[in-house]
């Protein structure tokens, strides 16, 4: 999958930096377009295993598009085209390869969306759904996994007495943690979070942030956020994107204290975006 992207793209020197630990995934020369609009231009981005990688940038920079590509969410809608590759390690399969079944990808890389989207069913059924689609019938196993996932999402103590009441009765923050539990129940390799706190109040946001820090020990996380402080607080690596280009990628501390690019500095200091 050789691409013919412009050589003078700003991404050229972006992939100079590579994280020190093992990699879970690597985006290579990935481009994406909605119809004639090019949303991502030749992106190269390594994802460190069991670390939080944050994608930041102003609206329309393509960070959500990139995140959703990890989960092949774009296959649901017409007129989307992409080229390049996203390798998932250790096997090195190409997540966006045409011959790879998107359902397999989605079972291995779970997504948490911007707006909490629990199913209008019971809390139990919400968390169990990932196992239901796999055809897991063993009730003891399902119950165990549900408790594990709800504990991992720091929701167990709040809902253990009402697992069979409707998920809609939960508060927004609880719903989002339920969605995280739902994504965790099947032990995904990568947890994709698309602005998971954008619709939440500060208290709920801080709980989710604590949760992300806790989850980092067991799962690779890629998080899209509008909130630069959030990226600074919870991520190990940060990628700054602008208008479909990856401008700069580095350790979060470097990005926020000593950005290499003028544009990154302007953005994190709030001069645009």
């Amino acid at each position: 999958m050789v691409t013919t992207q412009a050589i003078h793209s700003p991404t050229d020197d972006a992939h100079v930096f590579t994280p020190t630990g093992p990699l879970k995934a690597a985006v290579r020369d990935f481009s994406f377009s909605y119809g004639s609009f090019k949303a991502l231009k030749n992106i190269n981005l390594p994802i460190a295993e069991k670390k939080v990688t944050a994608l930041i940038g102003p609206s329309g920079c393509g960070k959500s598009t990139l995140l959703r590509s990890f989960n092949r969410m774009h296959d649901l809608y017409a007129n989307n085209r992409y080229e390049g590759e996203i390798r998932l390690f250790p096997e090195g399969i190409n997540l966006v390869g045409k011959d790879l079944e998107p359902i397999e990808i989605r079972m291995r890389c779970s997504m948490v969306f911007q707006k909490p989207n629990p199913f209008p069913k019971s809390i139990y059924e919400n968390v169990a759904y990932g196992m239901r689609v796999r055809g897991v019938k063993n009730k003891t196993l399902v119950a165990e996994r549900i408790e594990y996932a709800l504990r991992a999402a720091a929701l167990w103590d709040e809902v253990k007495d009402r697992l069979h009441s409707s998920a809609n009765a939960l508060s927004g923050g609880q719903q989002q943690r339920l969605c995280i539990a739902r994504a965790l129940a099947t032990e995904p390799e990568i947890l994709l979070m698309d602005e998971p706190t954008a619709a939440l109040d500060p208290m709920s946001t801080s709980r989710i942030e604590d949760l992300v820090t806790e989850l980092e020990k067991t799962v690779t996380i890629i998080i899209v956020t509008h909130n630069m402080h959030q990226a600074a607080r919870i991520s190990a690596y940060t990628a700054f994107m602008y208008l479909g280009d990856l401008i700069e990628f580095n350790e979060t501390e470097k990005i926020f204290t000593n950005p290499a690019k003028k544009m990154t500095e302007s953005y994190i200091t709030g001069r645009f975006g």
Partner: peptide, 22 residues
Amino acid sequence: PNAIREAAIGLGATQWQTVRYH
């Protein structure tokens, strides 16, 4: 809402599983 479909699809449900159960 599309969010519901994306939630189900995002967990690895097939399209028919999404349609049938959601």
